[in-house]
Amino acid sequence: MNNIIKKFYIGKPNELQILNGISLDVSKGEFVSIVGQSGSGKSTLMNIIGALDRPTEGEYIFDGADISKFSDVELSHVRNKKIGFVFQNFHLISRVNAFKNVEMPMMYAHLKPKERQNRVNELLDLVEMSERKNHKPNELSGGQKQRVAIARALANDPEIILADEPTGALDTKTGRLVMDLFHKLHKEQGKTIVLITHSPELAYETDRIITISDGNIVNEEVKNGNI
């Protein structure tokens, strides 16, 4: 089944016009990166892609529907079921342990307790964090936290994983581990991943590199061959 994500926006609901008419699309199974410096508008773009925000003008066709006109409630459903976030600062809930963190999106999706339990264990296995599932975030290292966050992002089997500077708070070695995990998810599971980064080196690991600057797409590169 073809799953094409097409976007076309102008501007942004703020006084400053941060994005000046972006148009891009992402296909199912792609590993795409969006590169730009600070202030290029990449965060804003990510917020729109991630259905955290709506464009002031334009369309956002996601999985067959134009979600740019969706209500808050509908958007929350999209975020819950179809989008998986991985943040630079992990953004785990510090009050609960790793297991519960991964479980949370499933609860909003009204999965039954048994289903949730099985799936959480599966995902923690996938990111190799099963041993620490009862640990709270403050008992985990940066890399471990990010792996839990990735497991969480996969919770409801989303259409797309949005990773915003996922290695930004990690050292080189751990950052490497995380990138390898992304590649694994892309290759072995066919996941669609959009990576936002300011680092060209990281961007070059992906299949397609979209460069953004001052609210405009200035370049688009497709790599030949895989890593």
């Binding site: 991630g50 955290l52 808050d72 409630v73 929350s76 459903h77 999209v78 975020r79 819950n80 079921k81 989008i83 976030f85 953004h91 785990l92 809930i93 510090s94 009050r95 949370m104 999106p105 909003y108 999706a109 969480r152 409801n156």
Partner: peptide, 16 residues
């Protein structure tokens, strides 16, 4: 506040 933000990002509707 941050926690609430995270929950919303994960798809918790306002009513929840």
């Amino acid at each position: 506040t941050k926690e609430i933000g995270i929950e919303k990002a994960l798809g918790a509707p306002n009513s929840i």
